[in-house]
Design a protein around this nucleic acid. Structure first.
Lengths: 222, 222
DNA sequence: GGATGTGAATGCATTCACAGCA
DNA sequence: TGCTGTGAATGCATTCACATCC
């Protein structure tokens, strides 16, 4: 009965984004040995209202304990299940330039259940060389690798000029989720998940916030 | 009269985020020599409705040309002014680990008017060594550097355990905008701008999108 | 005809406020 | 008493639809 389908289809997008932050905080609490937490407490450290927190959790079940709060362990499992990170994910990396190599070295994903299984680069001279533990493979071998290993997630760290091309190939080969670091607006079919991180955009937003700091102060969400 | 105050205080936060994406696309058009663009066209490539595009621009003035569209050059200048990137910004980097070094090497900011002016690391052994063109300085010298050079923006690429501490010091020294790559929820005073990028969170969101791809398909933003 | 700019209508997400439970 | 879960109320953001202008 804990195998209820998660009915995640009705989780609003903003709530889904917050789930990752709840999870991050809860894992921190768990490490510290904390057993329960209330919506109020969680809200304070993450900058949400308590009502918001409760509503977010209510989207995928009722399992809080009135008078007590939520059990940390249980909540973690539930959120992981919703996010799909209760299973391992294989990920491939496209582009072994500065950014790509940094992402490899960074290793922040491992603990979250994501495993980089292959690295590809367009530069023929790089193919065959190693970066850390990884053998660099030529782009041309990506499609067959994806098909043979049934990979569904890819990280795109290639130059903007080729990003759309590479993305098209990946999607054709079966990739269903794309984390894009190239500074371009990719177009992908609706059935493909897309998240983009543009570092320059992040700084621009900061510049905006700081420029109008005096006035714009209200709610600074990420 | 083009010096009207931008009245940016009333730009809704979601609109402000889109401004960066408009700008990115417009700069691409400019490079290709395009002169004008309509709200419809811009909307199509970025995934917004035309009404949305017009409303976003209307927040900071009326300068479209009925029957024609918006002039690319003019729009770019306007948006840069709103975002505050019509001026140069000095930025310091905290943390010269894998991620920090990658950010340095990445250089995607330069063209946007952001210039890394100093790099700091807690590791005493690193202090004094070079990373690329940059001399690594000890953390202890950050506060005086900020004050002497009037730096307002900082990029935080330090381990999560120390991120809050470092952030507190930076803010005390005068930093007014923080781009945080550490996987923790920072708490900063309301007058400090904060943007966070957590790579693991990005992958989690993808996992969520892909897991419920069949159902959750509706609006998939950038 | 082909655009913009914008009030009005709609649609979501957030917050309120309270019933109900431990 | 302390907290959850949730309808109802509110508050924003988005979209519609149309007057207006080149």
């Amino acid at each position: 009965m804990s195998n209820e389908p998660p009915r995640a289809e009705l989780i609003p997008n903003p709530a889904a984004r917050r789930l990752s932050f709840y999870l991050r905080q809860l894992e921190l609490y768990q490490k510290k040995g904390r057993r329960t937490v209330s919506s109020k407490q969680l809200g304070v450290v993450l900058g949400y209202t308590d009502a918001q927190v409760r509503k977010d959790f209510a989207y995928f079940g009722q399992f809080g304990h009135p008078g007590v709060g939520y059990r940390v362990d249980e909540l973690i499992l539930r959120i992981r299940h919703i996010l799909g990170t209760d299973k391992k994910w294989d990920v491939i990396l496209l582009g072994a330039g500065n950014l790509g190599r940094a992402l490899l070295a960074y290793r922040g994903f491992d603990s979250k259940g994501f495993r980089v299984v292959a690295v590809f680069d367009a530069d023929a001279r790089k193919a065959g060389t190693m970066v850390g533990d990884y053998l660099i493979r030529p782009f041309s071998s990506a499609a067959s690798f994806i098909r043979e290993n049934n990979v569904r997630l890819a990280i795109l760290a290639v130059p903007g000029e080729v990003a759309q091309d590479v993305a098209d190939n990946l999607v054709a080969a079966g990739i269903r989720g794309l984390l894009n670091f190239a500074p371009v607006a990719l177009i992908v079919p609706e059935y493909v998940g897309l998240n983009s991180v543009d570092l320059a955009v992040q700084l621009e937003q900061l510049s905006f916030q700081v420029s109008f700091a005096e006035i714009t102060r209200r709610k600074q969400e990420r």
